[in-house]
């Protein structure tokens, strides 16, 4: 068992008495009770568990908590920089009414946010390639693409 320190959404968190092999996903959900990050496959195949690790998109289901000791994690709960100002992608997701069931969308948005911070003027195929690791069982891909374009056009995504 181990004690782990991580910065989650700007807050220092200490998790004691945890199996160091516990995936970041379950640490967030069970230990920190932050359930916005979702479990889909447990193997990094679906992207529902995507978070930002030191600013890069990462599959939290496949990263042991011991590997992120002392590092910074951003989850969907902390994507909006300020309490009353959503991230442009969150705004665009609502404008285009992207979600159907909504279960995959946190992972989609986190993946898209990391991607847009590197490419603020993406083409359709740039988006499709960047988002290929995130599954949507409901099939909201048309709207995800539109929303990413809208967020990119409106700016403020870096």
């Amino acid at each position: 068992m181990a004690t782990i320190k991580i910065n989650v959404n700007g807050e220092e968190r200490e998790i004691s008495d945890i199996d160091p092999n516990t995936p970041l996903l379950w640490t967030l959900r069970d230990n920190l009770q932050m359930v916005g990050t979702k479990f889909g496959c447990g193997k990094g195949l679906c992207g529902a568990c995507t978070v930002h690790l030191n600013g890069n998109a990462a599959r939290s289901c496949s990263i042991p908590i011991s590997a992120v000791d002392g590092q910074s994690v951003t989850t969907i709960e902390g994507l909006a920089a300020k309490a009353h100002k959503l991230h442009p992608l969150q705004e665009a997701w609502m404008e285009h009414d992207v979600p159907q069931c909504g279960y995959c969308q946190a992972g989609q948005i986190m993946n898209a946010a990391a991607f847009l911070s590197r490419n603020s003027t993406p083409s359709d195929s740039d988006i499709d390639d960047a988002m290929a690791g995130n599954l949507c069982r409901c099939g909201t891909y048309q709207r995800i693409r539109k929303a990413i374009h809208t967020a990119a056009t409106k700016g403020g995504v870096a």
Partner: peptide
């Protein structure tokens, strides 16, 4: 009309909504 889903804000900000989220 084009009316977005009523849970959208909770969905895009990761609020507890689903069965799996129950605590």
């Amino acid at each position: 009309k084009f009316i977005p889903g009523v849970d959208n804000q909770d969905i895009v900000t990761g609020q507890p909504l689903f069965g799996i989220d129950q605590q």
